[in-house]
Design a protein around this nucleic acid. Sequence first.
DNA 1: CGAGATACTTAGCACGACCTCC
DNA 2: GGAGGTCGTGCTAAGTATCTCG
Length: 694
Amino acid sequence: MSSKKNTKKVSDSEDDDFEEEEDGSEGSEEEDSAENSVKEEEDEEDSDDNDIKEEDNGDAKIEVKDENNDDDDEEEEFKPSISGNKRKNDTPVEKSAGLVNAKQVKTSGGDAIKKPVQKQQDSDDEDDENSDIKWKYLEHHGVLFPDYWQKHNVRPRYDGKPFDLDLYQEEMATYWSQTLGTDWEHKAKYRENFSKQFLETFGSNKGKYDFDKFDFTPIKIHLDEQRELRKNRSKEEKNQEKLKKEKLSDYYAGAILDGFREKVGQFMIEPPTLFKGRGEHPKMGLMKGRIQPEAVVINIAKDAPVPKCSVPGHGWSEIVHKQDVTWLASYKDDSVKKQHKYIFLSAESKLKAENDKKKYEKARRLKNLIGSIRENYERKLKSSEPIDRQLGTATYLIDKLALRVGNEKSEEEADTVGCCSLRVEHIQVLDNFQIGFDFLGKDSMRYQNTVKVTEIVWKNMQAFTKNKKRQDDLFDRIDASSLNEYLKSQMEGLTAKVFRTYNASHTLQQELDKANEEGLDKMDLKDKLNFYDEANRNVAILCNHQKTVGKNFDVMVGKMEQRINVYKEYEKELHTHLNKCKKNGVNPYEKEVILEEKDDGKHKMFVKKFPGTKEKIQEAIEKIKKKIDEEQNKKQSKEKNKEIALGTSKTNYNDPRISVVWCKKWEVPVEKVFPKTLIAKFVWAMDTDLDWSF
DNA sequence: CGAGATACTTAGCACGACCTCC
DNA sequence: GGAGGTCGTGCTAAGTATCTCG
């Protein structure tokens, strides 16, 4: 209810005709690169804009500041107040709290405050307390659009002859050329989808052309040259560009939510390119269309200034004031598949952090109830009702194997499954109460596992496969929503994914609790971190978080082995050297041997030193032993992590408080287990008490 | 109800910044 | 100080879950 009231179009309200005016009056504006538009559209064009906005909001313009443009006090004051970079998370913007405060920030040089205050009062009041209001005040700078295509005029060949392409054709052809030499090039579907769409651009002439006769290597070569050129830019040039980028990002990343500066996440509209779906995606190779501002909906507070659209001659689709959602902007993109995209605040924002914390608290509630919940679904396993046996069995799998729930998918997507969408062909009922699983899950990652289950589960699984074809659903009486409905009856807010969070965090806690037995106190930092990685790895294995093996993994490991062998040989030689030294009292053989490990042209050197005194030799032996040890550890963890991605569980499944407490307890700096961004994301967990546990 | 819409989280990969090792 | 490797971050695809509507 409340939200509905808030979502009406700006243009509906008596004082906002923003889009109409903008659209109508600016058709002839220069229409190029977004980069230009952000920085250059200053005065002439700006004045139009301000006219409109000043009517709306008093003086509410937002400008990107350029180094050469520091003459405007208003902007000067405004900008830092909302810029993302200097933001201090827990310092309210401008001291006081809440709505009033945010407005002060926004208007710290102008008079926008007057009107909005009135606007604010006429409808919001009763909304605030009830329902799920996510914010009271929200202000941001909108979204950034990728540059329009700029023609490079490098022609492909057709039938061996240079061939002219129009603007859009060239753009498509270039995206295609980007993938020449990669795996994509050889995927039949990718080629099929692209070629069809590409030929489509010739309209009624499309029948005249044969895609196989096109040769795009000239464009490919051009792209390679461009990359080379970019790489070889001067230091200053690179620096300049970096600064520019930072400036832009500083501007767009800046938002204010309820009186606090917050960082916006991904604010750049996804640029056009060829769609690259994971796995056997039927739509791979199709052109992702260019998103125009007219497709973008902006969500801000009623009394916030309307962000400026950076594309000359264009305007937003709509300005809404939906307080029951967290997105700042959204757009529909149906070019490849029907979908909505959103611009959110970044992971480190209060809004996201709060949700994150709630997620873990919910998982902890599950932890406390898990006993009775397990009893409940175990009872269901034996129920006389087939539906209940399926619910029980599916819940068992979700709990024990951390499977995803498995929503229905359409034909237009890659064929992947989760628990409820498992088909008979995905499992094998084996001897000894074992079940074999082999299916493609999210992102077409293969889940392959053989597990011993309880007798009753085993029998159920066998029954569910009876008289069915391979392609039939294993669970034919339930789906994701009925399963979640059942879970809801067991605990408020319980859904299938909570089991994953709970099991992951619980596993991490258990693993890390083994620190005492492992004698962590006697370990050095490196070994402690190995121990942590091991725990982390167990979670990743549970959740099936995989990564593809890098193409030169074997080469890498080979090199390490070689290095270890060299070290070992050196160690042996040192021992003989030491013996000789002992016999003679003094060392007659002091020497250095320089080894060059040659490897495909490049070389690395290793110097074997044979010192002249027993003590020094002894030292050298110790040193090389340590090096061997380190190198072996490194090799081992590399092999262990060969196909396992540790990052995903760290960011999404492991309650950060577990790690924080562990770090404190064992005197490991948190920044050794969390990279910068995760520390920022998990600020809320950083001062957890030592006695806390999941 | 069921299908599509909507909102938000979870996921792997490419690439570039940074670090290390001589 | 530069090449080679590592690692973090940005990007965007692909899930989950719930809501809405005919």
